[in-house]
Amino acid sequence: MKVLMKPVDMIATYPRDGLPIPHKYRIADTDGTARVIKVDRILYRTEEKLAGNRMLIYRCQSTIAGTQRVYELKYELNTCRWFLYKM
């Protein structure tokens, strides 16, 4: 997997008793067109606090252009932003 760290538009749910769950996100493709990707499965979630900055990392799986891909999403608690971290 390569580090991308691209900001994405996200639709997620925030359960009353837990951490956010990503459902689908929109990302600008290399040619500038927007592409929507649905999160098929969340494999596991970890947390990091590098430099004291908390981030949740979701290892996810989706079907993109007909192939099944595993990648990571990151949620920065401090700014409430989502990123496509690695793919």
Binding site: V3, L4, M5, E48, L50, A51, N53, M55, F83, Y85
Partner: peptide, 13 residues
């Protein structure tokens, strides 16, 4: 060091 870690966390290579 702190600047470096912050940059790495935000995707710097």
């Amino acid at each position: 060091s702190w600047e470096a870690v912050d940059q790495l966390q935000h995707g710097a290579s």
